[in-house]
Amino acid sequence: MSPASAATVNERKAAVLAVRSLSVTFQSPTGPFEALRNVTLHVRPGEKIGLVGESGSGKSTIARVVLGLLQEERDVAVSGSVRLGLREILGDQSFIRESRGDRVSMIFQDAVSALNPTFTIGDQFKEVLRRRNPTISTAAALRRARVALADVYLHEPDRVLGSYVFQLSGGMSQRVMIALALINDPDLIVADEPGSSLDVTVQARTLHLMNDLIGRRRTSVMFISHNLGVVREFADRVYVIYRGGIVEHATTAQLFADPRHPYTRALLAAIPRLDQRGIPDVPETIPGFADPLIEHEGCEEPSLASA
């Protein structure tokens, strides 16, 4: 076959992220709530995976575990395994704490509230750059920040660096966040509903930009969204999550051409079409949502033996 498939074999040797049998249970005043059930997924180097599900499906909980944020909370039980590269992060917070913002970075839905309102954008670049290189000088940090801002098409980098987040538009803040997420050349970016609070045209442009920059760097991405259309345009491979469990796993092409799980089929069938009149008929109850995971051909996780 082509040389590309040989590269894929190599890449499989070390998944950037490998989540295995992850279960998360919250203790709430009304009793335990199982947010994630036996979730297994992986992200290979340079790969963009999509994690798609409705609100409350647990997709953001996965992101919070991968970023090590959930483990710091009270009243939550996490079991299973989460590896970043070869390091296990469950049970040891030190590694993920060091890696956050450096090896692993994040892009959130609402950049305006994700950025610190009390520091200038320039200060935030310095802070992030110092996570990788604590001795970097202010001048060097700002130099790198200017280049990063130019990459996201912010044409007045000095004005942006001196601004606070409230002085920027939603689209600009989103670009700043993308630049911040990429500046340390991370192994993995976790993007949770990026741009979904923006207007459609701005969102489309933001995603386009993100796709372009990430593609050039071959950064791995875990892309979380409720919007199947957005996932279709962004991801190479997709996990569909329903009520805390993965129900379907396929390449993007496979999933949209041949959805197999009743839940995925129902979701796809329920989306209004841009090219035809009428609203799809969705019955009040659809059987089979609780059916076991369906994994398409060629999507299996690289085995541990080859790692």
């Binding site: 045209t201 259309g229 279709r232 949209f256 079409r273």
Partner: peptide, 11 residues
């Protein structure tokens, strides 16, 4: 129209 994320090839 051009910015709408869609889920099928026809769209």
């Amino acid at each position: 129209l051009a910015a709408v994320p869609v889920v099928s090839d026809e769209e």
